[in-house]
Design a protein around this nucleic acid. Structure first.
Lengths: 153, 153
DNA sequence: GCACAATAGTTGCTAGATCAACTATTTGGA
DNA sequence: TCCAAATAGTTGATCTAGCAACTATTGTGC
């Protein structure tokens, strides 16, 4: 049960990077969440659901959608309840697996997404992109993808 | 009410960096939270409260602690309730401002922090630090601090 | 010196997330 | 073939966070 021996200690520069990473994430998501719901009337998780469905061509199984938006299956059940009550998505039974349920983007959902996307992208550009060089963006992506490969299941 | 005109569009490399940033944050905090409570019996927010108090020399006003751990004042009230019920911190009225309350680290709190810190630092090193060069760590820090300066109040 | 605004902290209410348990279905050996 | 294990989704219970409202105190402009 002992933790595995570490090869090397965590040093100060890495810890500082980690702290800045955490603070930046907290503040950025707070601001972007606020701006998106103020200017597009859409909570960030709703946006995320819509965009994931869109990327997947308009339909996803509950299970896959849950993984895509980083939510538990139970959490997604309730979230999809709310979003579909607003008419932006709908459920459809899955024909070849009768346990399964598809979630699909409705026309109304597509419209809301088209409306919200520029708002959100402007926010990301304003608070993040604009302060980051192309070279730095490439570094961030490379580093985080490398980290993710080790930590993803 | 129109959003200000953007100077430049959000481009694909920045958007990819942003997405990787979000995913990495979600997965890393999930893993670290899980490991910390498994191996040190401490939720991450509790750790954060203890470490912030420690950095501040053992005592902080509720208001300042709330800002430090990125929580609303109401949220912190309840959090401090729970942590002090476990004996790791305690409240003390503030002598020169009778509206105010200090939160202070107890001996038990210090002990738990000493115990938890290596666990958490090992986790950060294992899942983050080890995959990031010194040069990259410096870039992350520089970028996120730059971003934070624009978005912090 | 006093009224009024601002600030510190707590509390009631509610929204949203998780875990564990449950039902229904599918899968994969013996 | 058939039964046990795995998987999909939902539901109940619970936990934690935020907002708005409240009390108490401090600061400020006249």
């Amino acid at each position: 049960m002992a933790r595995p021996r570490k090869v090397q200690e965590l040093d100060e520069p890495h810890l500082e990077a980690w702290r800045s990473f955490l603070r930046a994430h907290a503040r950025l998501t707070e601001v972007l969440e606020h701006e998106l719901s103020r200017d597009a009337g859409l909570p960030l998780v709703w946006y995320d659901v819509l965009i994931q469905l869109h990327h997947a061509g308009g339909r996803l199984r509950m299970h896959d959608l849950a993984r895509a938006v980083l939510l538990s299956r139970a959490g997604l059940t309730r979230l999809v309840d709310r979003i579909s009550a607003d008419g932006l998505v709908e459920r459809e039974p899955c024909p070849d697996d009768r346990r399964g349920t598809f979630v699909l983007l409705t026309a109304k959902g597509i419209a809301r997404l088209e409306e919200a996307r520029p708002v959100h992208h402007d926010g990301i550009q304003e608070h993040f992109g604009r302060h980051v060089s192309l070279r730095e963006a490439a570094t961030l992506r490379r580093v985080f993808d490398r980290v993710l490969r080790q930590v993803e299941p």
